[in-house]
């Protein structure tokens, strides 16, 4: 029991990541509202940031600027990678929302089932 708890506390960041990942994916699949789907998608992508960033931080580590006073640095590479990923995520979200605006203009609704009743073939 203690072991399991220890295991959990040592890796709690992963559990948070996995929770976010699954809830994001669940929202994408389960929701019929196009905007809510995008929120879920965003959540899903955000979980990846945590997957990369949390292991990069070393307890007691500092920013990786060379200085005689410090010996432990955090890994900078994942941070840089995630900057890129955030940009990609924002772009995706923006494009997705723009599409939803156009869909609303074209169909008058953002509910998936209502759209399908208007365009039965598009499923």
């Amino acid at each position: 029991m203690m072991d399991a708890l220890q295991q959990f506390s040592a890796h709690y960041n992963y559990y948070i990541t996995i929770f976010l990942m699954i809830s994001g994916l669940f929202i994408v699949i389960a929701r019929g509202n196009l905007i809510k789907k995008l929120i879920g998608l965003s959540l899903f992508q955000t979980s990846v940031y945590l997957l990369y960033l949390t292991p990069a931080k070393i307890v007691g580590g500092t920013a990786p600027i060379y200085d005689k006073n410090f010996t432990v640095y955090a890994n900078p590479l994942p941070h840089v990678l995630m900057l890129t990923a955030i940009v990609v995520g924002v772009a995706t979200l923006a494009l997705g929302l723009a599409l939803v605006v156009r869909i609303k203009e074209a169909y008058g609704t953002v509910e998936e089932d209502e759209i399908f009743t208007k365009d039965p073939e598009s499923e």
């Binding site: 994408v28 995008l38 995706t92 494009l95 997705g96 599409l99 939803v100 869909i103 169909y107």
Partner: peptide, 11 residues
């Protein structure tokens, strides 16, 4: 429908 197709592909 192109909009919807694009949205589905985006997801």
């Amino acid at each position: 429908r192109a909009l919807l197709a694009s949205y589905q592909y985006l997801i």
